[in-house]
Design a protein around this nucleic acid. Structure first.
Lengths: 226, 226
DNA sequence: CCAAAAGTGTTTAATATACACCCATGG
DNA sequence: CCATGGGTGTATATTAAACACTTTTGG
């Protein structure tokens, strides 16, 4: 039943995996992408997408590949989060997992279960199911990091499509911070960052004044403030 | 010549190591602890202390153990930094290194080469020797993180002994920031943090007014500001 | 008495917060 | 014409920065 084991070392080696916490904003809520595990351990349980590092593959590449294979999600903002390696976190063998977190606008996310995953779906962060391994810890760490980075980086812009209105940007911050912000102060702040510029276009949506569209000046780049 | 290789897996596993960047303040400069490698690869070259993860050992424990074994340094503030896993960063085999950074007051550091290390010594951060592997990258990342954390945490207090004067605290910040700070503003800020309290004792050193001693209220704890 | 670091407040500038009305559109 | 979200400025409060002299000690 067991496969041949041709990869031998003079001292024991842990396995190395990546796990990815992908956040997006859907239905005015912060949501997280999970897969339902198709194989043991924890078969049938929801988990972060992720998997084993190929021996000739960089860590970032592994995260991007596993995410694409298991969920169909590609070309998102990916950032290394923290490495989880507690003994016993995986019942099969010693596994050290390099966790990533990812952000993407909901528009760009065509999710489809693949590969190892029986299913892939979005969950509101405030209504997560039971999770495999220590993935609840990883998610908590990722969420903390995301909130901390709001204060001193432009990371939240990664949750918006290429062009967006100031109202949409404000909604992103309001959802993430779970707080209402003053419209005039927010706009002053956002424009003073000098990270966005008007495209010159407007968006007409609904029966009200059209909204000016903006884009990042330094496209797809997260910059640090202060 | 080669050892037996009794540890076999059905797919190839990278090796996992920890490397530790220990900072201290000595001679009014930020200094880093390096070891001279005793064995290939890079035998004779300076490198960060570190080594292979034991299969039943947590990552933090590995960092603490390797640091103690190779340099004699114990009981320092240790924090996971970033995981470096570029293919080819170690010529022997695929190695993923979970890097840590550490801070300690110079007083507590009785450095002695051990184990794998032919020598252990402090280097000013602005005068580092050639380094093994990608350790120059790790050090640069650690230094960036240290400076970033100055702004929003009490991490710098880890570079001071249990009791210290406000003048010493100011020197820590001035050295790290490479800038002069206003004494009155600095003291106002430090006391407003509500992280330190006067011990009631004073220190007499040199022919001038004795300085009040302070300690952290929440001892050995790094807190986040703002 | 001299040198050296410790200790102490006030004024000014910069930044952040509070707050209310008109605009342009679709239906 | 009305409902809806877009767009705009000023006054106040808070926080940060600039700045100089007296104190205590050892030698």
């Amino acid at each position: 039943m067991s496969a041949p084991k041709p990869h031998c070392y003079s001292h024991p080696h842990p396995a190395v995996t990546t796990d990815i916490a992908v956040f997006t904003l859907r239905e005015d809520a912060l949501q997280l992408l999970l897969i339902r595990r198709g194989n043991p351990p924890f078969a049938g349980t929801w988990a972060l997408p992720g998997g084993f590092l190929d021996i000739d593959e960089d860590l970032d590449a592994c995260a991007a590949r596993e995410l694409a294979e298991e969920t169909g999600v590609q070309d998102v903002y990916l950032e290394q989060l923290y490495t989880f390696g507690t003994v016993g976190r995986d019942p099969r063998e010693r596994v050290v997992s390099v966790a990533y977190f990812a952000l993407a606008p909901a528009e760009r996310l065509a999710v489809q279960a693949g590969d190892d995953a029986a299913d892939a779906a979005w969950f509101r962060l405030d209504a997560l199911p039971a999770l495999a391994f220590d993935h609840a810890d990883i998610i908590a760490t990722a969420h903390r990091r995301l909130l901390a980075k709001l204060d001193y980086s432009t990371i939240a812009f990664q949750l918006l499509p290429e062009t967006f209105t100031l109202g949409e940007l404000q909604q992103v911050y309001e959802t993430l911070l779970d707080a209402e912000l003053d419209k005039r102060n927010f706009r002053k702040w956002a424009l003073a960052l000098a990270q966005i510029e008007a495209t010159g276009e407007v968006r007409r949506r609904g029966s009200h004044r059209p909204a000016r569209l903006y884009r990042l000046t330094d496209r797809e780049r997260v910059t640090y403030l202060r």
